[in-house]
């Protein structure tokens, strides 16, 4: 009941600051556009005046893509048939869980890092907005909140990375090598598959857990004006373990909604053939709606968690 109650409160609060979600979406869009322009030029130059362009407009020309891939450098290396629909989501999920982002082109890595840091900055604004009795979005107050908490949140981010690296390096890495040893001695690929799949699930659960704990640490900093990031983190951890059913329940409920939205997006995306300009435009609109929804759900998570924290305290 606590879960649903705070979920509804979070939902209502997020609904009140739709402008903030739109603002966050525009930032995401603008950031992306910075890289979209060079990618657009690469695709345009590669297709040139070739009639392959017509085939790529109607469907996907595999032969062209192989030529493009074999010549690709930097950002271009990230273009593949698997960026379509479900592939895009799975690529990102796999990259996150298997820490493949270390292998993405340096430009994209630096860019992604900058975006995350910027989002750390914005997180202060988001939580400050939800901290109001009746959440209301104004750019001035948002920026003020973002500026106030930025350095603490940045420190929290570094702490969470340290934790992930430490656990990743010593724990997950050890499990990984144990699995590799088992795989090397196995007579069937099923055993290593199950073990690797379980490890991936465990890693993902761990990353989500870290996110949840640090979300509460950020909430504590905003609500209680705590300045000690270690204390906040430990107290957040304590809070999560003190109310495991509510914290995990709320967190996974919202991730379930995220998953449902993602599946709906994939299904919708797959039925749009994108073979002419109106259909491409329709697909583009759906994509942007999906990204907006993802950002909205992130805000919903913050607001619901904040509501739960207040409720429990």
């Amino acid at each position: 009941m606590k879960i649903l109650w705070n979920f509804v409160r979070g939902f209502t609060a997020t609904g009140r600051v739709a402008k903030m979600v739109l603002f966050l979406y525009i930032i995401n869009l603008l950031f992306s556009l910075l890289l979209v322009i060079p990618m657009y030029n690469s695709l345009k130059n590669s297709l040139g005046q070739s009639e392959v362009g017509s085939r790529m407009a109607e469907g996907f020309d595999y032969i062209w893509w192989e030529e493009f891939r074999d010549d690709a450098k930097g950002l271009e290396t990230t273009f593949s048939p698997s960026i379509i629909g479900k592939g895009a989501i799975l690529n990102n999920l796999e990259s996150l869980i298997q820490m493949r982002f270390f292998f993405i082109p340096p430009l994209l890595m630096v860019f992604g890092l900058f975006y995350i840091i910027f989002r750390v900055f914005l997180a202060g604004g988001i939580l400050s907005t939800f901290n109001q009795d009746i959440p209301r979005f104004t750019l001035r107050e948002f920026a003020q909140g973002a500026g106030t908490h930025f350095f603490h949140f940045l420190a929290l981010m570094l702490l969470s990375w340290g934790l992930i690296m430490a656990i990743g390096a010593f724990f997950l890495d050890s499990i990984n090598s144990i699995i590799n040893d088992i795989a090397a001695k196995s007579t069937s690929e099923v055993t290593p598959f199950i073990l690797m799949f379980a490890l991936s699930a465990l890693t993902f659960a761990f990353l989500l857990f870290v996110q949840m704990v640090f979300d509460y640490a950020r909430i504590k900093i905003v609500l209680e004006e705590s300045r000690n990031i270690f204390k906040s983190t430990l107290e957040a951890l304590g809070f999560v373990f003190k109310h495991p059913f509510s914290t995990f329940g709320l967190f996974y409920l919202i991730y379930l909604i995220q998953a449902a939205v993602t599946v709906a997006y994939i299904l919708l995306k797959e039925i749009i053939p994108q073979s002419n300009f109106p259909l491409v435009l329709a697909a583009f609109f759906i994509q942007q709606l999906f990204i907006f929804a993802v950002i909205w759900i992130r805000c919903l998570l913050y607001s619901s968690q904040m509501a739960l924290y207040r409720y429990m305290k």
Partner: peptide, 15 residues
Amino acid sequence: MAWLQHALEFFTIIG
């Protein structure tokens, strides 16, 4: 772009 936008948002899980 949709892949990139999702990646940017998705990777905020870490931090």
